[in-house]
Write a protein that binds this DNA or RNA. Structure first.
Lengths: 211, 211
DNA sequence: CGACTTCTTGAGGAACGTCAACCGCAGTGG
DNA sequence: CCACTGCGGTTGACGTTCCTCAAGAAGTCG
């Protein structure tokens, strides 16, 4: 669409290597994975958001200072916008403004989903849930297999679980024949209905021992 | 500002009683508290977002169906917009569109903060954090006291902790003279620096017993 | 006062975080 | 070719923590 092309014309392409911190706050992802990293007092680390190809990034905050650090989890390419020119353009082109608003709404909807995962799901349920999230990321294959886009350490910081626990949950799902690893990074979901049930709360904490 | 007044003129006022589910997806909060409630398979309940006075609500989702139910936690009044007229108005008035975009960005920023709480903080830390969140809500008093705007059950579902655990955390903070209860609903923060340290990760899990 | 909901307190146990050690792999240098 | 190093990931042991269940206290409304 025309308006989007105009917008892209005013952008400058940037590339980042893994672990490289990023100061720009507005842009569009072209490839790779970025995340907003936050650390609290004693070093605990959280990745509150992941950005993949096609995502609009706009971390500006009107009232308070921006919290957290944008950084690359994989080699990433990015189209950076000059903030003031970006805003000026949006106010002249309502089509593009609508697209941006849709992106922002979609982003908040995904964050609500993620908040549900973090607030009440068990580690196994979170693992299943994040696997579905990654399955939807491009590129999408037909055989329900996909490549884990980021390190397990980063996945665990994203779903609020220790790396050791994530490892055990992955192994547990694998031993139940629900997923299988073609390589350490390549996963296939072999029983999607059961996995979906688990991801939606099908593996709660047991209060009594199983008889 | 003029544009906002025009927008408000095309809205219809609504009131809700507690626990009343709400089907409208776009509007502005005038009073009370609304929340997006989600339940997963075995009945676990999460409040992924809270909306207070002044917040813009826009839960529309472009790609998939909206997840979760908007409901009132207290008696609430709300200005509901007709969705198509709202969008049409935004495309003609860039000032208002900018305001809406700012609101959406601020909202995502708050959700990132909340994700950090949920992902890695201990129940005591989450309690301190949510107390600061409520302290910022209107009305703001000078003596660092405020009224808990919602039931404890709802607070606990918001911060991803059982109601019993929240109760114990509140009591623990009270016994340390960090907060005090003027009434079951009225709280005063009596040691804000310490509380802020705790809210930012100052009360981690102990792996070794204290000697 | 009684019926109801909300909140609190207590006891008990599974689970997940913590620590430590190990494995596999890639890169490096002798 | 091998030893060494560093990183990412895995496995095991252990104990605090917080969830679960149950019952009681406190507040609310008729």
């Amino acid at each position: 669409m025309n308006s989007t092309r105009d917008l892209l014309a005013m952008a400058t392409a940037k590339t980042w290597r893994p672990d490289q911190p990023i100061s720009r706050l507005v842009g569009v992802m072209r490839s790779g994975v970025l995340a907003v990293e936050r650390r609290i007092a004693d070093g605990r680390r959280v990745l509150c958001v992941l950005f993949k190809q096609g995502d609009l990034i706009d971390l500006r905050r009107s009232e308070r200072l921006p919290q957290g650090q944008l950084l690359a989890l994989t080699p990433a390419t990015f189209l950076a916008f000059d903030e003031t020119r970006f805003d000026a353009y949006l106010s002249t082109c309502s089509d593009t403004a609508t697209i941006v608003q849709d992106q922002l709404r979609e982003h908040t909807a995904r964050m609500r989903d993620h908040a549900v995962d973090l607030a009440c799901k068990t580690p196994t349920e979170r693992t299943a849930s994040v696997l579905f999230e990654f399955k939807r990321w491009p590129p999408v294959y037909e055989d329900d297999s996909f490549r884990l886009p980021i390190r397990r350490r980063d996945i665990s910081d994203y779903i609020g679980v220790r790396a050791e626990t994530l490892s055990r949950c992955m192994r547990s799902l694998e031993s139940e024949r629900l997923i299988s690893f073609l390589s350490p990074r390549q996963v296939r979901l072999t029983d999607i209905p059961t996995l979906r049930r688990i991801a939606n709360g099908g593996r709660p904490r047991r209060s009594k021992p199983v008889q």
